[in-house]
Amino acid sequence: MTNVYMPRKAEIVSIIPQTDIDYTFRLKSDILPQHGQFLQVSIPKIGEAPISISDYTDEYIELTIRKVGTVTDAIHELKPGDFLFIRGPYGHGFPVEDFKNKNVVIAAGGTGLAPVKSIINRYNRNPKEIKNLNILVGFKSPKDILFEDEIKKWKEKFDVLLTVDNGDETWTGNTGLITKFIPDLKIENPDDTIVIVVGPPMMMKFTCLEFLKRGIPEKNIWVSFERKMSCSIGKCGHCKINETYVCLEGPVFNYTKSKQLLD
């Protein structure tokens, strides 16, 4: 009988600090996930945590992990050459095949950028796959900005709008919530535009509403949920909302579905 809880060992090749508390861990791995899928990452005797795959190639995967508690604290202590234990990938990612030749808008708040970063990099490598990409990213403050180098790179090819809720003396960029910028966003043909929204629950809710106001059809909007998860394989019940298991049917949901996930 295969043990579905048995993780495999994955070596940490490099660690890239993004902020004081967010580090990107690059692991040797040949997993080829869907964009938006996640892993269960563990350290024996400490515990497991579900973590989105923030990027991948056929040689490595990247996880961007915020230090918030027992497991993530312990992961932050690790060094290149150490091992993490992983199982997965789990859940359903973004149906990128359906996004081909469309206008794509990605709105990400904070660590919400992690699960969509691999999509952005995919388009960065193959810009022809879609008509046009618009990126909106928001962080709490300048010191919370993740993937600064990559954002710079994206700016060369795409429209990128970076904003912080509150700036500081040195900040010269945009300030304000992402929702502030949606009314003025250039959206040529709403029916032909795919919108991806990922971030904290409140951010997702209001951002989606703004896009609906702009005439984007509900079925064109995609979101990613974060729920407490213990098993990630539909057994433990923690992630359930109504008859939906976020770990199985999600974490990525179409808006037509996600609006029915009452809690």
């Binding site: 009988m1 043990n3 394989i233 057994k235 298991y245 770990c247 199985l248």
Partner: peptide
């Protein structure tokens, strides 16, 4: 429920 059987 889901693609896997719980082996335990």
């Amino acid at each position: 429920n889901g693609p896997y059987e719980d082996n335990y």
